[in-house]
Amino acid sequence: MNPFTYIKARDASQAVSGIAAKPQTKFLGGGTNLIDLMKMGVETPAQLIDITRLPLTQVEELPGGKGVRIGALARNSDVAEHSLIQQRYPVLSQAFLAGASPQLRNMATVGGNLLQRTRCYYFYDPAFPKCNKRNPGSGCGALEGYNRIHAILGQSDQCIATNPSDMNVALAALDAVVRVQGPKGEREIPIADFHRLPGSTPNIETNLQPDELITAIDLPAIPFAARSHYLKVRDRASYAFAIVSVAAALELGADRKITAARIALGGVAHKPWRAQKAEKELIGKTADEKTFRAAAEAELAAAKGYKHNSFKIELAKRSIVRALSTLTAMAS
């Protein structure tokens, strides 16, 4: 672990001016990811600004029925248990509760969760010489290595890592908007533009600037999200990252015709994967297994597997079918 200094910020502007003042400064949320990475020598900040005391921990309704705002420093467990979230966006509550362990969820913040880094073994452990994300230009250790947990959609030859967050998958399905504050003021980043595909710069994971603070996440009003669902497929019953996950919401009209659908996949790509092809395939069709399977096939048509993770392609299809079937069963 590199020597570093530690300071506390009292409000957002102090945090933002603090990060601008010293290069190699990072915000410290719950620390459940950053501190681990510092111990491993993957992250080597010279300074940490503790932002956990910022007054950004509320979950509140936006005026005018525009949705719900979640403060960036709200703890994962508090958001999961919040009645606004449970009633209007059950998919998000379920996603939180499917993640990590109660102890970790009590520490983890929403902002930190947005930025949690991949669990690719080669990235996480600097003993591995190759990782373009950790050390641009060094190559990708996973490509020819052990790649069971890696991406099947949207990856590049430079990086096949996945985004490990459960929360992010639900946010992608809900069209969340990330609110940030930087030296030039505030701006909004739609979740679809927040995380990036690896391309040739897997070291740049988001479109957030290094001197910007995440202040909140806005969830737009989506009435049919009240019936939404998060399915997490993992290697043991609890406390494991998703090998595949699905966040979904369905709006059904008369005769079980699908009038609107939101689907996002986790564990398959460098960013939470909004399944637009599948969504398009569903609209106007009858909600049944055949329709769901066709939609899943459409989404995964472009998928590519590697030595240890090809199973994810079929697993993702099945997971889409199961998640949508579960929603349909809830409707009837």
């Binding site: 073994y121 080669y122 003993a127 591995f128 290595g145 052990y146």
Partner: peptide, 10 residues
């Protein structure tokens, strides 16, 4: 599981 290249456990 081991990395087939370096022989390190992953």
């Amino acid at each position: 599981s081991y990395d087939p290249g370096t022989g390190l456990p992953v």
